[in-house]
Amino acid sequence: MTVDNKIRVLVSKIGLDGHDKGAMLIASILRDAGMEVIYTGLRRTPTQCVNTALQEDVDVIGLSILSGSHLTLVLKVIELMKAKGVDDKKLIVGGVIPDEDIPKLKDMGVDAVFTQSSTYLEMIDYIKKATGKEDAST
């Protein structure tokens, strides 16, 4: 086998709200786009997310947040990413995010925000471009 670079993405749900249908759907869509998705399920803390991203050596950390506390949670994730030296990974946020918060998230250091008005294709394209890794499903 030749050198085989797969895009690895962490899909994690942080915050306390109780269902993960959306995050699970995104995880499946990214898998179908040829990526390796590490799916952690519900109610992760920022610490758990960043520890996982480090161990799994993902290219992208994808956070799904519906709880409304996205600003504080994301800030915490970014602080931990810096502290643990994994701030080279792309951080994307999806979920129910009010438009006025998108620039705030980007100022904090979030690389991309996907809301309900974004398409899955936009997200897939973004990840492929941002990681610079070819879709390895050749």
């Binding site: 590490i38 799916y39 952690t40 480090l54």
Partner: peptide, 30 residues
């Protein structure tokens, strides 16, 4: 891995929640 897309959905961490706060003690890789 999916034979169609080459991607994979790695979900074993769902049950490992408690150990994700103990990185010095538990190192997991999917």
């Amino acid at each position: 891995s999916s034979p169609f897309s080459g991607g994979a959905l790695l979900g074993d961490r769902i049950r490992m929640q408690d150990h994700e706060v103990d990185p010095e003690g538990v190192f997991m890789r999917s």
